[in-house]
Design a protein around this nucleic acid. Structure first.
Lengths: 331, 331
DNA sequence: TTGTACGCGTTATCAG
DNA sequence: CTGATAACGCGTACAA
């Protein structure tokens, strides 16, 4: 193994000089030159564990969320990864595959100092998670709604405004009987989007028809398909907003199999603007929540906080964008 | 900060005893009890940097690939993440966002000991990557074709067999004029899948029509769309195999915009069996290369090698599966 | 400007 | 079975 000692020997200087050269501190020209030469010759790489132990920084940032299967999180991961790739920090992934217990396990190990910061998108409102987060000794950036009592940098998107815009749009293209296909109510997005739906109906003077909420038990196409298949009142509505594109895709599959024409029989709107939305037939009108951008913003917040721990807490609000495609064209 | 010393003090024993208790070595009943009590009381977590420095293991496994934007890699990541989540190892992501230079940068830092193993899917045949890989001091598992001269555990899928099966299937449903929509030739999959196409045509006594290869410059829907739009001979063919589902989706978009009926005018086959394939209209016949499973297998190979560095090199071959859907139904 | 020496928090060795 | 102590590789006072 090639350590800082071997380099020092090779270059004929002390280890202190090698360390200084590496960390860009003052050194005489020829010393510097010899050190770099030795480093190249031996292909020396500072040991990150020793360095971390000494400087108390791991140069790693942990990204934690609930389910990598959800494309929205994939997009976020890309944003974070891209923003971090230019920095000195590595990205450690801690996806929990939809289990609160796993997230808690992860959070507990965060005290070990293997990460300098945590970016987390906590979709379950579990109090244990909140408690662990608030006890954390490293900076936290939350993507999504900030849990009660947590004071952290935050990237937030007003999904309610997106749902509102969707309903305004539906009204504008002449739809009045609007339904909502929701994901699990055990999640923050599920609860928030449903509430937004009801509020938006009211604020637009639209009737809230009975049984206008279809409740899927996961944010997945299959779950949407099951839910819709087993409920018999879809034909009551002329339009439906889905809590994400995956749900919309599952719904559209059901429609195409049951001779329900989109958009003539039923207008459909999704959320997230995933790749899916422009590839489905018809193409899907959707609320872009800018997941990738939010990931990048969260990473930037983290880098800034790491660079200056004293700066005031920041909250960045991202505005949703309604992307209009074929699935809501006028009849 | 609470260290092993504080725990020792609290428990009234030596730090050596604390270390032993933690690592499950022999200790007298009451000693053990007091140590655990102190650990709970102080909420002690061993510092991972100090531990890594001492035992020369970071308990991290690095996953490196070229582009997280490609759903196939997302699926792989999930497989790896899930397989690792039960282990003591963390998953460090090093996605390179389609730049060879970035991969090389990552590989160079692997010498620092921040990861105990590297799982990599090198799709560019760059010699510098091969060289860096062979110099690595930690175990490597390669997903995909093993670069010349590299001796590593390997998870390989015979995509040629998949293409062959696709062509047999097309022939069986009465298609004879088969085209191929390829991704970049600068990638291993691009080169291999194209070769497989030509071989399969020959072995099935099918005519290789002129200009039967459409060459996209990325494995993305947009790229497929551009490529097909700017080439005027698509109507020459009655069927087309695409180098992945993304390309197929882009192609299908073009078709639906240009009144080309699938499957009656053109049968379409994709590769990867991503979520997309069952959600597109018509649903897409595709070659499942079992990306998630390959990721999980690679992780298992890595865990096994880490547990026993002397075990012989393993190569796991995954068989592709042709998933038949609507896009290749008989006319 | 350079070198010596110490400490970061652990694990592991070796006497007791 | 336990406790003192020497590493692990690096960064940095402090002294030269």
């Amino acid at each position: 193994m090639t350590t800082i000692r071997s380099v020092a020997e090779e270059a004929g200087v002390s280890i202190a000089s090698v360390s200084r050269v590496i960390n860009g501190l003052a050194a005489r020209g020829d010393t510097e030159e010899r050190v770099w030469k030795a480093i190249k010759a031996l292909d020396y790489q500072p040991n990150s564990a020793a360095r971390a132990l000494k400087v108390r920084r791991s140069e790693q940032i942990c990204l934690s969320f609930d389910d990598l299967a959800n494309p929205a999180y994939t997009m976020m991961t890309r944003g974070v990864g891209q923003a971090l790739s230019a920095s000195e920090y590595r990205l450690v992934l801690a996806s929990a595959f939809s289990s609160v217990e796993e997230i808690i396990k992860h959070l507990k190990t965060m005290g070990r100092g293997f990460a300098d910061g945590l970016i987390i998108s906590p979709i379950y409102g579990d109090v244990r998670i909140t408690k662990l987060l608030s006890n954390l000794q490293i900076p936290v950036v939350v993507i999504g709604t900030l849990p009660e009592g947590i004071n952290a940098d935050n990237v937030w998107v007003d999904s309610s405004a997106g749902v509102e815009a969707a309903i305004v749009h539906l009204k504008h293209v002449g739809r009045k009987k609007i339904a909502f296909l929701n994901g699990p109510l055990s999640t923050n997005p599920g609860r928030r989007r449903l509430a937004a739906f009801h509020n938006a109906l009211a604020s637009n003077n639209l009737q809230s028809l009975s049984e206008n909420v279809f409740q899927a038990d996961a944010f997945s196409p299959d779950s949407a398909y099951q839910t819709i298949s087993s409920s018999k009142n879809l034909s009551t509505f002329d339009s439906i907003i889905c809590a994400n594109d995956q749900l919309a895709a599952g719904l559209m599959k059901y429609c195409s199999q049951n001779q329900i024409e989109i958009p003539s029989d039923l207008a459909v709107i999704g959320i997230d603007n995933t790749d899916l939305s422009s590839l489905l037939r018809p193409t899907l009108t959707t609320i872009d929540l800018h997941a990738e951008e939010r990931g990048a913003l969260a990473a930037q917040l983290m880098l800034q906080r790491l660079a200056d721990p004293t700066r005031p807490i920041q909250k960045i609000v991202v505005e949703p964008t309604l992307v209009i495609r074929e699935s809501t064209e006028e009849k």
